[in-house]
């Protein structure tokens, strides 16, 4: 239980990484790191595919600075997301080499996107009390 609060539409309720949502509620975006082999996981997971150990992960705050690798402006949505169009979906890479697939803040217009623009991954509270994250422009200084 706990993960059903994540995302506009959630398909998952139970997972070992449900604390991710609690951290998000506190304003923190967390990854996991394997205590046995050191591999970092984002999105987080509790089972390590590299050394095959389970439940020996520590939660670790990410370096929250991202650059967009590629994006699309979606004018067409799956059932349940129709009210959101158009929305920008993007793949971004962090300063420490993690990758995320997520949405861009509605405040960002496509014309503003420059390749060197920096973003942060920020928790967003949805109207029905659920929570998600999105990329928002990183203010310098």
């Amino acid at each position: 239980m706990g993960f059903e609060k994540f995302g506009k539409i959630s398909y998952i309720r139970e997972t070992k990484v449900a604390p991710f949502v609690d951290y998000l509620e506190q304003g923190k975006v967390m990854a996991t790191r394997c205590r046995s082999c050191g591999k970092m996981y984002f999105p987080p997971r509790m089972d390590c595919e590299q050394c095959m150990t389970s439940d020996n992960m520590e939660w670790k705050e990410i370096v929250n600075e991202w650059k967009i690798l590629t994006y699309t402006v979606s004018e067409f949505a799956p059932t349940g997301f129709e009210d959101d169009v158009p929305y920008i979906l993007a793949i971004a890479e962090s300063a420490e080499g993690l990758r995320v697939f997520t949405r861009l803040s509605k405040d960002v217009k496509e014309e503003q996107l420059q390749s060197d623009m920096k973003f942060k991954l920020a928790p967003v509270r949805l109207p029905d009390g659920k929570i998600t994250y999105e990329l928002q422009p990183l203010e310098e200084g």
Partner: peptide, 9 residues
């Protein structure tokens, strides 16, 4: 878990 909640098609 990580892609569908954002409306990926």
């Amino acid at each position: 878990m990580w892609d569908s909640p954002f409306g990926l098609t």
